[in-house]
């Protein structure tokens, strides 16, 4: 067994520097690497490029890094829930590359899987395709999109083991598995870190080969963005 465990978030983030490109899992505030984000805030790492589907809310998730102006560029598909983000973007302080959500996921998966690029129909004929190669396959037009390159991927899983194997829960899975192994170093934070052998190999979502460092985070806030309930059964 090849051990991937590190003691804490400080050790897990060793090597992060100003100006790096980070991938961060999560959809909205669901399944975000809370501990890694808090540590990036504490370290005050600046000029970051973040690849993340969303940008958090004003006072949580990536919003915490935005507040301190640590982010130079965001690559996201939807940023609607964050006023500070919109302000920085419209004023030109923050560089933003809006990318269709499926393309964003696939640019991660391509990096993970060794594809330099792929063709997708998403964005053809729109400003997203400007300057990009397009090609027709079977009568339909496609846009060439390139795999991401990143220094670190920060992902959040439900359970993990010492070998770096990961299991996700519910829709907190989202972009996290796609980002594992898609950056030079993948850091996984989990709610429950188990000894090797404790997780059933049949149930592993991401094999440990895609993960370089794993640690257990405590007291996850798991903030809910839109608490919706029904009254009757």
């Amino acid at each position: 067994m090849i051990r991937k465990t590190v003691d804490n978030v400080q050790e897990a983030l060793k090597g992060v520097e100003n100006g790096m490109t980070f991938m961060l899992g999560g959809f909205g505030l669901c399944g975000i690497p809370e501990k890694a984000i808090a540590e990036l805030v504490r370290l005050n790492i600046e000029n970051i490029t973040c690849i993340s589907n969303n940008a958090g809310v004003d006072d949580f998730g990536l919003g915490l890094l935005l507040q301190k102006k640590q982010i130079k560029k965001m690559i996201s598909s939807y940023v609607g829930e964050n006023d500070e983000f919109e302000r920085q973007m419209l004023s030109g302080e923050l560089e933003v590359e809006l990318t269709p959500q499926g393309t964003l996921a696939e640019k991660c998966r391509a990096a993970q899987s060794g594809f330099p690029a792929f063709f997708t129909p998403a964005g053809y004929g729109t400003e997203v395709a400007l300057g990009k190669e397009t090609r027709e396959f079977n009568g339909k037009m496609y846009v060439l999109e390139e795999a991401f390159k990143a220094d670190f991927a920060f992902v959040k899983a439900w359970k993990g083991d010492e070998a770096g194997n990961l299991i996700f829960k519910g829709t907190a899975r989202n972009f996290n598995p796609c980002m594992c192994g898609a950056a030079a170093i993948t850091v996984a934070e989990v709610e429950e870190l188990m000894p090797a052998g404790a997780l059933d190999p049949n149930q592993i979502h991401i094999p440990g080969i895609f993960v370089q460092r794993i640690f257990e985070g405590r007291n996850y806030e798991k903030r809910i963005e839109q608490r919706t309930v029904r009254k009757t059964v």
């Binding site: 598909s77 940023v79 419209l90 809006l98 959500q101 499926g102 997708t120 964005g123």
Partner: peptide, 13 residues
């Protein structure tokens, strides 16, 4: 400018 989310993938596909 809120972003396209998944809309571009959905309508193109």
């Amino acid at each position: 400018v809120k972003g396209m989310g998944g809309a571009m993938d959905l309508v193109a596909s």
